[in-house]
Amino acid sequence: MSTLNGKRAEAQQQGRKIKVAILGAGGIAHAMALTLNRMADDPRYTNLVKPYAVAARDGERAADFARQYGLPVSYGSYEEMLADPEVDLVYIATPHSLHAEQGEQCLRAGKNILVEKSFTANTAQAERLLATARETGLLCTEAIWTRYMPSRTIIHDLLASGIIGEIRTVSANLGYTITGKARLTDPALAGGALLDVGVYPLNFVDMILEGRPYDRMATAMTPYQTGVDAQSTTTLFYPDTVMAVAYSSMVSISDRDGVVWGTDGHLICRNINDISAVDVYDRDYRLVKHVDMPEQLTGYEYEVASAANAILDGARECPEAPHTDTLRIMRLMDDIRGQWGLRFPFEQE
């Protein structure tokens, strides 16, 4: 047994559960609260995590949230949560522009963090946050759920089997009509399609091509009336004639497919945001394999379980989303926005 796994086994023998607090009470926070409750009732996770608390800037809102999900503790300020020694892991569920500052505050207060995507608003913020994580020795990981899901390994194994030959082209898209959400159209909150939905096609490409570096990039976007990106397309060119195209939109509904084209066939992933099934076609376009993904609680349980186990192991990152991967995607999104000439107000300052 390794030293890390030994730490985990010892903690579990002592009956330790990772107490999770949610920072923020918006839509994604509700999804996480539901996930934590389901994990607490599931024999696979019941001895691992404990739904514990929620923090919001409005005490009444936090209390209502806690009552809705049966959380034992609520806080009317983030400072109250940071002062609670019972909190083991903080899930940061606020707008992108706040992740870096709030993440650093949590780490300085001795709290491990699971940070909702996009990890931060830009690479500079990400590097500062990860430097703080190294300094404090605490867990800091990005909650990009597709990197933790079983679908990732299933797809990797299919491609590794050679069922479609050598990979030559990848395409992925994600689009929803979500301009009604104020944070997504506000430049001051790092709004726009790229950081909210565009991060998924880029991560899909990155996982399929296993993080290989690209040679050059071509990208363009159409702006929303507030100046952030409404929708965009990015093409990445790699060595050996490999190419990948990623589309994102917050003004239209896309089919959400991720497609991998090979020399002997192609593979279609249904809904890259939460893959439900994979279809494999041969060179004659005949369906030769259909794979349904395993049943999930919500899909968020995998990132929570990985973070909890990492804490018990004394690790600073999760194997599914190491810091190098997070930084690579942040740099790519910075490069994309750089070609667009899109900077957020706090970056210009």
Rank of each mutant, 00 (worst) to 15 (best):
T179P: 01
S248Y: 13
P345R: 09
D313M: 10
H156D: 11
I18V: 09
G191M: 02
K19W: 14
A11N: 06
N37C: 07
E60L: 09
T234L: 04
I28R: 04
R316M: 15
S77Q: 08
R38Q: 13
E86A: 13
L36R: 00
E135S: 12
L130P: 01
L98P: 12
L342E: 00
L23H: 09
M217V: 06
E347N: 08
T94V: 13
D58P: 07
L297H: 01
Y52S: 01
V280I: 10
V87H: 04
M217R: 03
G165K: 06
R16D: 11
T136V: 11
D196Q: 07
I92K: 06
H266Y: 15
K19Y: 07
V115I: 06
I18Q: 02
H323L: 00
A11Q: 12
D206S: 10
S2V: 03
A244S: 12
Y238K: 01
G103S: 04
T153M: 04
I178W: 14
F237M: 10
E10P: 03
G265D: 03
T235Y: 14
A307C: 10
A29M: 07
D240H: 12
D292L: 07
F65Q: 00
I144F: 13
D313Y: 09
E347M: 06
A246R: 06
P213S: 06
C269E: 09
T46Q: 15
I18Y: 00
H96K: 07
Q102C: 02
L129F: 10
I167N: 01
